[in-house]
């Protein structure tokens, strides 16, 4: 979320519109509202994370979504112009685990079976892909970021050890606002 001073006003208007939209969606469909929050949170989380060296050399930031997920549309809407890490965002739907490549910097994992998750994580373990899910227990299972709702607010778990092993550097500020799973003890 870049906020250059000169178009701050315009951005403000846009934000207000989005929030208004979120508010409307919230009333109509809680599902789509939480998806928007998640989509927005992805950008913020990415802000505090440093990808392993060389993994962000592409012209664009690719978000992969496994399987058919309603969040895809929300992401596409939000990142039509909005950038992540100062890169244009490319939303890609991925059909199966095998087609996941290093060209994808972030992978949104839907609610899948644990075995499938393990298989996926095994596939991505040696790749600089930030894995994000919204299923209870996935963080403990090895997913790097896992959204959850607490007291009617979107929160997230952070698998510090997993990220550390994958070469991601996490700003301490992000740690302050996340629920840390598998903390790295130094």
């Amino acid at each position: 979320m870049c906020r250059a001073r000169k178009n701050k006003g315009f951005t403000n208007v846009r934000i207000v519109l989005i929030l208004l939209m979120v508010f409307i969606h919230n009333n109509l469909s809680p599902q789509s509202d939480i998806n928007t929050l998640k989509a927005v949170a992805i950008e913020k989380i990415a802000l505090f994370i440093t990808w392993p060296p060389g993994s962000l050399s592409n012209q664009e930031f690719t978000i992969g979504i496994l399987g058919d997920n309603p969040i895809t549309e929300t992401l596409k809407q939000i990142y039509l112009e909005k950038k992540i890490k100062d890169l244009r965002v490319n939303i890609v739907e991925i059909k199966d685990i095998e087609s996941i490549t290093s060209s994808c910097q972030l992978l949104f994992i839907p609610k899948i079976k644990m075995a499938e998750l393990n298989k996926l994580l095994k596939h991505t373990s040696n790749k600089p892909i930030l894995t994000i899910s919204d299923t209870k227990g996935f963080a403990e299972a090895g997913c790097m970021i896992n959204f959850y709702v607490y007291e009617n607010k979107l929160r997230f778990e952070l698998n510090q050890k997993g990220m550390d092993e994958a070469g991601f550097k996490i700003d301490y500020r992000l740690l302050k606002v996340s629920k840390i799973i598998n903390p790295v003890i130094e």
């Binding site: 913020k44 802000l47 505090f48 607010k153 500020r173 302050k176 606002v177």
Partner: peptide
Amino acid sequence: QYAAAPLLFGY
């Protein structure tokens, strides 16, 4: 510095 992240996330 301390408030950046919670503020950004609206916590």
